[in-house]
Design a protein around this nucleic acid. Structure first.
Length: 816
RNA sequence: GCCGAGAUGGCGGAAUGGGUAGACGCGGCGGACUCAAAAUCCGCUGUUAGCGAUAACAUGAGGGUUCGAGUCCCUCUCUCGGCACCA
């Protein structure tokens, strides 16, 4: 051991030691039980930022702990290497995306290795490798065969400036100028996410995920219960005799004062042909994307059509409007307007002077009271003829009885989840294995022609794949005629929807997911940011189920890809704002890695606070951890002899008990994933205990062992070095965790009681453990300060409460 | 608007099923070592009153339940993150 702690030298030496012993290599056929711990892989943007540092440090605490508990732990790493940012960045700087990605991954791989994460690098994957994406094309083809991907036009936001499809977000964030954006109808390959909606919803009950993510996904799936109700047209129009609407509030049926249809509805289209004003309105309304039907507070616009429908119960006619707040592909693209009991309908009706009729009132409220604002709360029906006095469930039953036999109403349900358009008009992505033939239409590429390789010698600055004749021109696999390849590529969310499965059989040449992956799947624990709650995490769950149904996954892989999930909070800038380039408050992992080394960086980021919460960056606190490790090093050097001497000794009873209690606290914090408490409450406290009891050799030996085992989860290099320096056997990374500590072991031969009178602490009392309640109460009553507070009062109650962990409460309730 | 998280000393943050609020760290104060300083080590450190024992007040605000509330219930304020016209 060096005199002084030199982080860089220690870390290099220790990493070399791990490498020489192959400490990170993972075998599929290891006899230990398996544990698959995965962190969301990074987008290779150049350097690791401190958010990555946090994510991977948290994951590594868990993975190393599982390993020490005796599991064969798989913790792989790879690159989400395709994507728009690489392409845009490359365009801007004139570098090929492939070159950009390669240099970035090289850099980030080095940084990850320097951080000492327990990653089996022989399993590394990158989405831009043809050996990876060929299986994505394979999956696409299998889904195409089963109609799980289909081709249909959809509306998208088109950026005229760059000639690409852009996301709504990018416009909102100002990445794309508003005036350059228009809505275009585009052919799209869509995955049938909706078909799995019910299962995606039900599956949420089977996984240990944060409540927040579960709620977000439930909301995204948006399953609702209601009725579909048919309104007859007063006179047939556009070849229609009736319009069906879906509603979750059939109890407000008698309050319908208009009906609204989407601009693409046949009734609207027919009216547009007759009336130029309606035509103009419809054209404008069609510029609104379905996903963008707004902005909840944007104004609602509409035009009345010269059409009326009849209320199926009362037969009363109401006008039909075309309105821009109607969503094309939700329900039937038409809705019944009930201004009194729906916010949107209310503001629409207000604007156009449409009558507002109360048909619902909370119990006891005046049914004749005017409606001042939309009353959404569910009461009972009023002013509703046959429905009067019924609640929602009652109304549904009544309407079923009244209208059901005539086929005018039925119970129904709906989902707001949409199918998933996966093609992007980008070069840097997985080519879609489809050939477009003038005669045969869309023809899948035969399996033997996979992969459809993305050509690298492309002028991606201009037209991407379309400008590459050797790529574009192909023969139709069906009829042999000249045909063109599909030039769109896949959404990167497809790339990362199945990578967890491929990690388990990284180089399988003949199968997407080989049999040897079976023991690993599903993934036991996943770590990542909650920004993926509604994107990646839904797509991965969907693709897992699809792969299961297509028999791509081994049968034991389960219904869900990730059994447990931890979403770590953000690392904020030192100004407590979200880190961003524009705020100039970003911190890169290398800034701290170079200055202090990996162990200090990891110690800081784990100690920063509860993994789930967001914390601001604080450079001063980084230094504190560096100082701690230095002091620990010095202490360990001083104690080498005592540690060796204590190998066969037991600590003094009180010290042994104190150590056990700290270890129990460490176990609890690990179980609850409160990793920050491992640093201060755990490692620091054990350090203090051994530091303050130098004469207790047994404690030195056991205490340092426990300390280093815990430190191994967080600052593994220095822990490994001290482990060797203090003469412990073998590699620390291979050491086993201590046995779970039973509550009985935490009990000393003395018991501390806090004595309370009327709920206020009045004294402390230490007595031999094992005394009966009466003896303890008697002793408590005898405490001077307690006696003083009880004097002249009647003791109405006296009780002993024993808490686990060696303390208790004695309380007196005194009156008078 | 909806969903979620949060508010505890000068600061970061602890506190197991309601049971010693402020663990541990930083900073501050005092001391040791030193010619001196840095580093290191030791002690003290929520506020107020008191020489002291001790007492009162303290976990965003206000109520409630309880012998006892940071923790449970109700109302409110503020901060952060995500999602948003899904009939």
């Amino acid at each position: 051991m060096q005199d002084k702690y030199d982080a860089k030298a220690v870390e290099q030496a220790v990493r070399r030691r791990w490498e020489e012993r192959g400490a990170f290599a993972v075998k599929d056929d290891d006899p230990r039980p398996k544990y698959y711990s995965l962190c969301m892989w990074p987008y290779p943007s150049g350097d690791l930022h401190v958010g990555h540092l946090r994510n991977y440090s948290i994951g590594d605490v868990w993975a190393r702990h599982k390993r020490m508990q005796g599991f064969n732990v798989l913790q792989p790493m790879g690159w989400d290497a395709f994507g728009k940012d690489a392409e845009l960045k490359a365009r801007k700087e004139g570098i090929h995306p492939a070159a950009w990605v390669e240099s970035n991954t090289a850099n980030m791989r080095r940084e990850l290795r320097e951080l000492g994460y327990m990653v089996d690098w022989s399993r590394e994957l990158a989405t831009c490798n043809p050996k990876y994406y060929r299986w994505e094309q394979h999956l696409f083809l299998r889904m195409w065969e089963k109609d799980l991907v289909y081709y249909s036009p959809t509306k998208v936001l088109w950026d005229k400036a760059t000639g690409t499809v852009v996301a709504r977000r990018d416009v909102d964030d100002g990445k794309v100028a508003r005036q350059d954006v228009e809505v275009r109808e585009f052919p799209a390959y869509q995955m049938r996410l909706r078909r799995y909606g019910e299962e995606l919803l039900a599956g949420l009950a089977k996984i240990a995920w944060p409540e927040k993510i579960v709620k977000d996904q439930q909301y995204l799936i948006g399953r609702s219960e209601g009725m579909s109700i048919r309104f007859a047209l007063e006179a047939p129009a556009a070849g229609l005799e009736e319009i069906e609407v879906y509603t979750t509030r059939p109890d407000t049926l008698m309050g319908v004062t208009y009906m609204a249809v989407h601009a693409s509805h046949p009734l609207a289209a027919a009216a547009a042909e007759r009336d130029p004003k309606i035509k103009e309105f419809c054209e404008q309304a069609l510029q609104i994307l379905p996903i963008d039907a707004g902005n909840a507070d944007s104004e609602k616009n509409g035009v009345a059509l010269d059409v009326r429908v009849l209320n199926p119960v009362s037969g009363e006619p109401v006008p039909v409007w075309v309105a821009d707040y109607v969503i094309d592909d939700y329900g039937s693209g038409a809705l019944m307007g009930v201004p009194a009991h729906d916010e949107r309908d209310f503001s629409f009706a207000r604007k156009y002077g449409i009558p507002i009729v109360r048909v619902n009132a909370l119990p006891g409220a005046d049914p004749a009271a005017p409606v001042e604002q939309a009353e959404v709360a569910k009461g009972v029906a009023v002013n509703s003829g046959p429905l009067d006095g019924l609640d929602l469930a009652g109304c549904v039953a009544k309407l079923e009885e009244l209208l059901g036999p005539k086929g005018k109403a039925r119970r129904d349900h709906n989902m707001s989840l949409r199918d998933w358009p996966i093609n992007r008009q980008m070069y840097w992505g997985t080519p879609i294995p489809i050939i477009k033939c003038a005669k045969c239409g869309l023809v899948p590429v035969p399996d033997e022609d996979l992969p459809v390789e993305l050509p690298l010698d492309v002028d991606f600055l201009k037209e991407g794949l379309a400008s590459h004749p050797e790529f574009v021109n192909a023969k139709c696999p069906k009829c042999g005629a000249d045909a063109q390849r599909e030039c769109d590529t896949m959404d990167t969310f497809v790339n990362s929807a199945w990578y967890y499965a491929r990690f388990a059989c990284r180089d399988a040449a003949d199968e997407m997911v080989a049999a040897r992956a079976a023991p690993w799947l599903p993934c036991d624990h996943y770590f990542g940011g909650d920004e993926h709650a509604q994107g990646h995490l839904v797509y991965a769950r969907f693709i897992h189920k699809v792969m299961r149904d297509l028999k791509i996954l081994p049968p034991e892989s389960g219904d869900e890809p990730f059994a447990a999930l931890l979403c770590q909070g953000m690392v904020l800038g030192s100004d407590r704002k979200k880190m961003s380039k524009s705020q100039d408050n970003t911190v890169m992992a290398k800034d701290i890695l170079e200055r202090y080394g990996a162990d200090t960086a990891r110690m800081y980021i784990i100690g920063i606070g509860n993994p789930k919460d967001a914390y601001p960056w604080n450079e001063e606190h980084v230094r504190d951890h560096a100082l701690f490790l230095e002091a620990l090093w010095t202490l360990a050097r001083e104690r080498r002899e005592q540690v060796a001497a204590g190998a066969d000794a037991e600590p003094a009873a009180a010290n042994g008990l104190a150590l056990k209690r700290l270890q129990a606290a460490i176990d609890r914090n690990l179980k609850e994933q409160r990793f920050n408490n491992l640093v201060f409450g755990g490692i620091h406290s054990i350090r203090n205990l051994v530091r303050d009891n130098p004469e207790d050799a047994g404690l030195q030996h056991q205490g340092f062992a426990a300390l280093l085992k815990t430190l191994n989860l967080i600052a593994p290099h220095v822990a490994e070095e001290l482990w060797a320096g203090l003469g412990y056997e073998g590699l620390l990374i291979d050491a086993s965790w201590w046995e779970p500590i039973a509550a009985a072991e935490l009990q000393g031969d003395e018991q501390l009681y806090v004595v309370q009178v009327n709920g206020r602490k009045r004294d402390e009392l230490t007595v031999a453990a094992g005394l009966g309640d009466e003896e303890v109460i008697a002793a408590a009553r005898a405490c001077a300060n307690v006696a003083r507070h009880l004097e002249g009062k009647q003791v109405a109650q006296a009780k002993v409460v024993r808490k686990p962990g060696g303390h208790g409460i004695v309380f007196f309730v005194a009156k008078g």
